[in-house]
Simulated scan of single mutants.
Amino acid sequence: MSYSLPTGAGHHVGTFVKTTSPQVIEILGGSGLDFAVLDAEHAPYDRAALDLAMLAGRAAGLPLFVRVEDRSAASLLSVLDMGAAGVLVPHVDTEQDAREVVAHCRYAGGDRGYSSSPRAAGYGTLGMKQAIAQGDRNVVACQIESVPAVENAARIAAVPGVAVLFVGRADLALSMGLDNAQEPRVLEAAEHVVRVALAAGKAAGMFVGSVAEREKYRALGVRWFIQGSDQSLLRQAAQAAARARSPESA
């Protein structure tokens, strides 16, 4: 499914999906979210579950990204062939990492293998030229989540084909020897990455846990947000319902 990053002062909001239920995708498709990200790095997604989720996303009109489990050519090729709108790639630490990721995601000028048979090529209904043009519009978002990645952020952002620098504050904190993603050093590094992305004409992305946090980073120029997950949204709603019980009904 095609997807375009927000332009101007606009911003997009999505969420992580960590439960392998196509019904969750259908529900999110009617929520008004701009996209969702299937978390194949930290959730129990195999290829069959990813493929079923992609079908649900298409049926619900919800563009789906995949946070892949690694940067390998096979992992990236697989989810793009399934029809992912883009990929969120963890642990992109250097310019070379970024160049390799982009190459694995691109036909023209890259090394992505071509087949007319998968969903991304319309199961053989798209001509090769159209399938290549469509496939090369997939969004590549690189996660900046280590001290070396922050130091190399400007060089990563300068790589053609990198569309988003996405700050992973939790792993960034671990890289700094910290156990709190809200530590001042982590927040300063995150803001540095945002500035670098914007200076390079790329989108800045951020994971946030609340609307208030989203608005804070939107004021700094972040335009691509992943807010919570299906798990956290379910838990928060359930906890709110539980707290709202009257004493008489308890």
Rank of each mutant, 00 (worst) to 15 (best):
D111E: 14
A131F: 05
A40F: 01
F35N: 05
R112Q: 09
S146W: 02
A48I: 04
A244Q: 14
Q227K: 11
D179A: 10
S116A: 15
D111V: 15
I27R: 15
D97L: 12
I144H: 01
S146G: 07
L198E: 06
V89F: 00
A157G: 06
P160V: 03
A120V: 08
A203K: 13
R67N: 05
I25P: 13
A190Y: 06
P22Y: 04
A163R: 09
F65Q: 00
D81R: 08
E248Q: 13
G124F: 09
A203E: 09
V101Y: 00
T7M: 05
G30V: 02
A212V: 10
D171N: 13
R67Y: 02
F207T: 06
V139E: 01
S115E: 10
V17H: 08
G205T: 11
L50H: 06
D93G: 08
G209F: 07
A149G: 06
T94D: 04
N138R: 15
A237P: 02
K18F: 03
V167I: 15
V159A: 13
A163H: 12
R137P: 01
D46E: 11
L76C: 04
A9W: 03
F207W: 07
A190D: 09
L52F: 02
R195Y: 01
F207E: 03
A56R: 08
V79S: 12
A74E: 15
D136P: 03
S232I: 04
G135C: 10
V159T: 10
S229L: 07
S210M: 11
E26C: 04
D39C: 13
V79P: 12
L174A: 13
E145N: 09
E191A: 10
M82T: 00
A204G: 02
R58L: 13
E100N: 13
A154M: 10
G124T: 06
A173H: 06
H42G: 07
R137I: 01
G228T: 04
Q130G: 03
L38I: 05
S115C: 13
I132G: 05
K129T: 09
A43V: 06
Y123W: 15
R245H: 08
K216A: 14
A181P: 12
A197V: 05
L55N: 06
M128C: 10
A59S: 15
R47D: 14
G57N: 11
S232T: 14
R218V: 08
A60P: 06
V196I: 11
A141C: 07
F35I: 04
P22Q: 06
V147L: 14
M206E: 12
I25C: 14
R214K: 11
I144F: 00
R243A: 15
L28R: 03
A242S: 14
R99G: 01
L233E: 07
